[in-house]
Computed example of a mutant assay.
Amino acid sequence: MVAQFPDVVVDLSAQDTNVFGTIGEVAAALTRAGYASAASQYTRNAVMCADYGEVMLLTLATVSVAGEGPGVASPYRACPCPTHEDEPTPAQLAAG
């Protein structure tokens, strides 16, 4: 998945899975990179998402996400909740 703003990198690996924290981190990164309008649009779209998985998919479509961890989802694991923790990450899939 190619992000709309690939030059904006957000590391969510150390963050908990609080959806508002994720939205804030992404919006702040977009603003710091000079995309204040995109930050506002991302925030509006994110708060309309039905669940955390949708927010993560929106995030991946908007910015580059670095790291893997509890706050990071992937197209292969859109929901970071414990119910889905046994699903492979992109790194695990690449390693075979």
Rank of each mutant, 00 (worst) to 15 (best):
G71I: 06
S13H: 04
E68A: 12
R44K: 10
C49M: 15
E68D: 10
Q15L: 15
A14F: 14
D7P: 00
G96W: 11
D51G: 00
S64T: 14
S37R: 08
G21V: 07
L30A: 04
P88Q: 10
P6M: 08
F20I: 06
T17R: 13
A36M: 08
Q92I: 01
Y35R: 11
C79W: 14
E87A: 12
V72G: 11
G24S: 14
A39H: 09
T22K: 11
A50F: 09
P82N: 09
G67M: 06
C81I: 07
G67K: 04
A78S: 13
V19M: 13
Q41V: 12
P90D: 10
Q41K: 14
M48L: 08
V2L: 13
P75E: 14
T59G: 10
A28K: 15
A29T: 03
T17A: 15
V10F: 01
L30G: 04
A3V: 07
G67H: 01
V19C: 04
V47F: 10
T22I: 08
A39S: 11
T17S: 10
T89C: 00
P75G: 05
T22M: 06
V2K: 15
C81P: 10
E54N: 09
A95G: 08
V55M: 01
A36E: 15
V9S: 04
A39F: 03
G67N: 08
P90F: 13
V9G: 00
D16E: 06
A95K: 14
I23T: 00
G71C: 06
R32K: 15
E54I: 00
R44H: 09
T62W: 09
R44T: 08
V19H: 02
G21H: 12
G34M: 10
S40Q: 14
M48N: 08
L12S: 03
